[in-house]
Nucleic acid binder design. Structure first.
Length: 565
RNA sequence: CGGGGCGUAGCGCAGUUCGGUUAGCGCGCAGCGUUCGGGACGCUGAGGUCGGAGGUUCGAAUCCUCUCGCCCCGACCA
C-alpha cells in the first residue's frame, strides 16, 4: 500500500477529548474516527490490525472444535422476555420498533438466539457437544462509553457458546476455551491475567475474565503476591483475621458526644476500627436493608446484590435512613427491628465490639454476636482490598487495574430450560442442554494491545497483529536513484508476500521517521542517497534504536528471516 | 441519572467577562520555489457565520430562554 493513497492521515496534535493512551494514539495515527458517543469507524490501518486479530481468534476457535456461523443482529424482544434477561439488561438493550409495531432488540449477545437455534436442531446426546461461534457486531446502550475503543456502544465480538449433555461436558468445554483464549492472547502479544469474576447480567455460576493490566483499565483486580489467587474486586474475598478481645463482657452504654464516624468513635474510645461494627444502609429494589459489618471492612455491593437477589441496589440516602427511624451515626442492630438485617461474617471474628446505641451521642461497648443481635443472613459481603490477607495462602493481597479483554461463563441450564433447548439421553429421558458462553471484544483487544505496546513516539505493534509488517521509507523522493531503488524493492517485497506500507510521500526525513514510529509498523526499511551509494538499505526494528545495513539484493531474504523470527 | 467541563475552519486554540467595521492565530491543506538522515523555509491561496432554534437590541460568537451534541468523575455496565 502506498501511504500517499491511504485513507487516514496522521495528526500532530492530540484531540482534546482523548484521554487514554490507546485512544490518543489511534486518533493521532488516523486509525479510528468517532461518529457519536461510543461509535467509531475503523480506518484501513486499524481494520487490517483488527482482521489479523480476528483471524487469530478464528484459527484458535476452529482448532478447539468451534464451528463458525452467523446469527441475526435483529432479535424479537419476546425471546428476551422468555429468559427474563430483558430485565437484567434493562436500558442497556437497544430496541426499535418495526412497521408492525413489534419491538426488536439489537443483539447485545446471543445466548437466546443460539439456544433457540440449537434447541431446534439438537435431539440427541449424540449431537453434543457443540461449539458454535460467530464474530459479529454487538450493540449495547452503555450508560457511559469511555476511553476510545475501551468501552463502546457498537463493537465487534467473538461469541462462542458451548452445549453439553452434562456438567462434566461443560467443564471440558470450558477448559478447552480457557486454553484457546490463552493461545489467542499470547499470539496477539498480550500478557493477560486470568481472574475469577462475577457473572453479572449474563448469569451462571463460575466465570473467569482475561485481564490486560493497564492504568486505564476499568476493573480493579485483587491478586495475591504469593500464590496464583486473583479475582475481580467484585468477586474477591480476603481473610478476616480473628480479633482477640477476651471472653464476652456485659453490654455497656457509653457517651460519645459528637462522634459519628467509625474513625472518630474508635479513636475516642481508644480501640482500633476493627473492634467496631458499622451499619451501612442500602435500598434494594426500593426496600431499606440494614448491613452490619466490621468497622475496618467495606461492603462489596456486587456480593450483596447477588445475595439479596436484587435487581437494583444503591446506598440509601440520609433522608431514607432517618425516615426509617434510624439514628444515623449511632445505628446498630442491637435492639432494632422492622427491616432486613444482613451481616457480613466478619461479625463472628471477635468479641466485645463497639457499636451504635441507636441513641444520638451514645455507643455500646462489648457487643457480641449472636448474643446481642440477630440477623436474617450472615454471609461474605466484604470488599477485599490491597493489604488484606489471601484466603488461599495467607499471603498479602495487592490491587491493580485491568482491561477485560475476554470473559468466559459456565451458564448451566437456566437459558436452555426457559427456551426449551433439550436433548434426549441414552435412556430416552429429556434434559436441558448445559450451556457455556465465551466472549472476546475485538476492538477492546486492539486498544488493550496498544495500551500494552507503545512508547512516547507511538504504537509498537506486536508483529502478528501489525497492520503491515514493513514500512518502506525512501528519504529523498526527488532523487531518482532512491525512488528507483525503493520502487523496485516495493514490488519485490510485495511479490514475496510481505505486507509493505510504502511511504511514497515527498516529505522530509523527520516527518517520515516520526510517522513511521507513530504508526508502529514492526520493521522500517530506509532507502536514501547514502544507502543507495552502497547498494544497500537499512533495516530497523520499531523496538530498537539501531538499524542494520543490508545489501539491497539481500533485503528481501533478511526481512523474511526477521519476520519468521 | 448526579457532579464537572466543553462546542468558533480538518485538528489545536484565542476572542465571550464589559454586544460595535470584512471573526483571528498555529498546524494541516492547495500552488510555486528553495530544502531533505528525526516533525525545514519563503511567497501566494482556499477554507468557518461561531452546535441548533427562538428572543432582546439599531447591531449578537458575545446577553436571555430553550434545545442538541461531546468529554471526564460517579452511578451503571458480560
Amino acid at each position: 500500500m502506498r501511504l500517499s493513497k491511504l485513507l487516514g492521515k496522521t495528526q500532530r496534535e492530540i484531540p482534546a477529548e482523548a484521554d487514554t493512551v490507546s485512544h490518543r494514539l489511534l486518533i493521532r495515527a488516523g486509525m479510528v474516527q468517532q461518529l457519536a458517543a461510543g461509535v467509531y469507524s475503523y480506518l484501513p490501518l486499524a481494520w487490517r490490525a483488527l482482521k489479523k486479530i480476528e483471524n487469530i481468534i478464528r484459527d484458535e476457535m476452529d482448532r478447539a472444535g468451534g464451528q463458525e456461523l452467523s446469527m441475526p443482529v435483529l432479535q424479537p424482544l419476546e425471546l428476551w422476555q422468555k429468559t427474563g434477561r430483558d430485565a437484567a439488561f434493562g436500558t442497556g438493550l437497544f430496541t426499535l420498533t418495526d412497521r408492525r409495531e413489534r419491538t426488536l432488540v439489537l443483539g447485545p449477545t446471543h445466548e437466546e438466539v443460539i439456544a433457540d437455534l440449537v434447541g431446534r436442531n439438537v435431539r440427541s446426546y449424540r449431537d453434543l457437544p457443540l461449539l458454535p461461534y460467530q464474530i459479529q457486531t454487538k450493540f449495547r446502550d452503555e450508560p457511559r462509553s469511555r476511553g476510545g475503543l475501551i468501552r463502546v456502544r457498537e463493537f465487534i465480538m467473538k461469541d462462542l457458546y458451548s452445549f453439553d449433555a452434562d456438567q462434566e461436558g461443560l467443564d471440558e468445554s470450558y477448559q478447552k476455551m480457557l486454553a484457546a483464549y490463552k493461545n489467542i492472547f499470547n499470539r496477539c502479544g498480550l500478557p493477560t491475567m486470568l481472574i475469577q469474576a462475577d457473572s453479572g447480567a449474563i448469569g451462571g455460576k463460575e466465570s473467569h475474565e482475561f485481564m490486560v493490566v493497564a492504568e486505564s483499565g476499568e476493573d480493579e483486580i485483587i491478586y495475591c503476591e504469593k500464590c496464583d489467587n486473583a479475582a475481580n474486586v467484585e468477586k474477591a474475598s480476603s481473610l478476616k483475621e480473628r480479633i482477640e478481645d477476651g471472653p464476652p463482657q456485659p453490654l455497656v452504654e457509653v457517651a460519645t458526644p459528637g462522634k459519628e464516624s467509625i474513625e472518630d468513635v474508635a479513636a475516642f474510645l481508644g480501640v482500633p476500627p476493627s473492634h467496631t461494627l458499622k451499619a451501612v444502609f442500602y435500598m434494594a429494589d426500593d426496600k431499606l436493608v440494614f448491613i452490619v459489618i466490621r468497622g475496618d471492612i467495606g461492603v462489596n455491593e456486587v456480593k450483596l446484590k447477588n445475595l439479596l437477589g436484587a435487581a437494583e441496589l444503591r446506598l440509601a440516602t440520609e433522608a431514607e435512613v432517618t425516615g426509617a427511624g434510624v439514628v444515623a451515626g449511632s445505628a446498630s442492630p442491637v435492639g432494632l427491628s422492622g427491616f432486613r438485617i444482613i451481616a457480613d461474617d466478619s461479625v463472628t471474628t471477635g468479641n466485645n465490639f463497639v457499636a451504635g446505641a441507636n441513641k444520638a451521642g451514645y455507643h455500646l461497648k462489648n457487643v457480641n454476636y449472636p448474643r446481642d443481635f440477630k440477623v436474617e443472613m450472615l454471609a461474605d459481603i466484604a470488599l477485599a482490598a490491597a493489604g488484606h490477607a489471601c484466603p488461599a495462602c495467607n499471603g498479602v493481597l495487592r490491587a491493580t487495574r485491568g482491561i477485560e479483554v475476554g470473559h468466559i461463563f459456565k451458564l448451566g441450564t437456566f437459558i436452555s430450560d426457559r427456551l426449551g433447548a433439550n436433548y434426549t439421553d441414552a435412556e430416552g429421558a429429556s434434559h436441558p442442554i448445559v450451556m457455556g458462553s465465551y466472549g472476546i471484544g475485538l476492538g477492546r483487544l486492539l486498544a488493550a494491545a496498544i495500551e500494552q505496546n507503545h512508547d512516547d513516539k507511538g504504537i509498537v505493534w506486536p508483529l502478528p497483529i501489525a497492520p503491515y509488517q514493513v514500512y518502506l521509507c525512501p528519504l529523498q523522493m526527488a532523487d531518482e536513484a532512491v525512488t528507483g531503488a525503493a520502487d523496485k524493492l516495493y514490488s519485490l517485497l510485495e511479490a514475496a508476500g510481505l505486507e509493505v506500507l510504502y511511504d511514497d510521500r515527498n516529505e522530509s526525513p523527520g516527518v517520515k521517521f516520526n510517522d513511521a514510529d507513530l504508526l508502529g509498523i514492526p520493521f522500517r526499511i530506509t532507502v536514501s542517497k547514502r544507502t543507495v551509494a552502497n547498494d544497500s538499505v537499512e533495516i530497523k526494528r520499531r523496538t530498537e534504536k539501531e538499524a542494520e545495513l543490508v545489501p539491497l539484493e539481500e533485503a528481501n531474504k533478511r526481512l523474511k528471516e526477521l519476520i519468521r523470527g
